[in-house]
Simulated scan of single mutants.
Amino acid sequence: MKKKNISQYYLLKNGLDNKTLDSLKKGKNITLVTLERLCHLLDCTPNDVINFYD
């Protein structure tokens, strides 16, 4: 978000709700639909947003 100069306010006004944004900040699970929406808003790929851990 910082690299693209996108605020939380922008995400909230364009389809993400407070609960989802809170989950993202806390590192909780999100749905693939949310991931798709986030990638669309940030103009990025899922690899830019998520990390997989063993």
Rank of each mutant, 00 (worst) to 15 (best):
M1T: 05
K2M: 09
K2I: 13
K3L: 11
K3W: 02
K3P: 01
K3S: 09
K4R: 14
K4A: 09
N5C: 06
N5D: 15
I6C: 02
I6W: 00
S7N: 01
S7C: 00
S7Y: 00
S7D: 03
Q8L: 11
Q8K: 11
Q8T: 12
Y9F: 09
Y9I: 10
Y9E: 13
Y10L: 00
Y10D: 01
Y10C: 01
Y10H: 04
L12C: 10
L12H: 09
K13L: 04
K13D: 05
N14G: 10
N14S: 13
L16W: 08
L16N: 07
D17A: 05
D17K: 08
D17H: 10
D17P: 03
K19F: 07
T20W: 12
T20C: 15
L21K: 06
L21R: 08
D22H: 12
D22P: 03
S23D: 13
L24C: 12
K25I: 06
K26Y: 11
K26D: 13
G27N: 09
G27R: 09
K28G: 07
K28L: 14
K28E: 13
N29W: 05
I30E: 04
T31F: 05
T31Y: 05
L32S: 08
V33P: 00
V33K: 15
V33T: 11
T34H: 07
T34C: 10
T34E: 11
T34V: 14
E36Y: 13
E36Q: 12
L38R: 01
C39T: 02
H40W: 10
H40T: 15
L41S: 09
L41P: 07
L42G: 06
L42C: 12
L42W: 06
D43Q: 11
C44A: 02
C44H: 01
C44P: 01
C44L: 00
T45F: 04
P46Q: 04
P46G: 04
P46H: 04
P46E: 03
N47Q: 14
N47E: 15
N47S: 15
N47V: 12
N47T: 15
D48K: 00
D48Y: 00
V49D: 04
V49I: 15
I50W: 04
I50K: 10
I50R: 09
I50N: 05
I50S: 07
N51V: 11
N51Q: 14
F52K: 10
F52M: 09
F52Y: 15
Y53G: 02
Y53Q: 10
D54K: 12
D54P: 12
D54N: 14
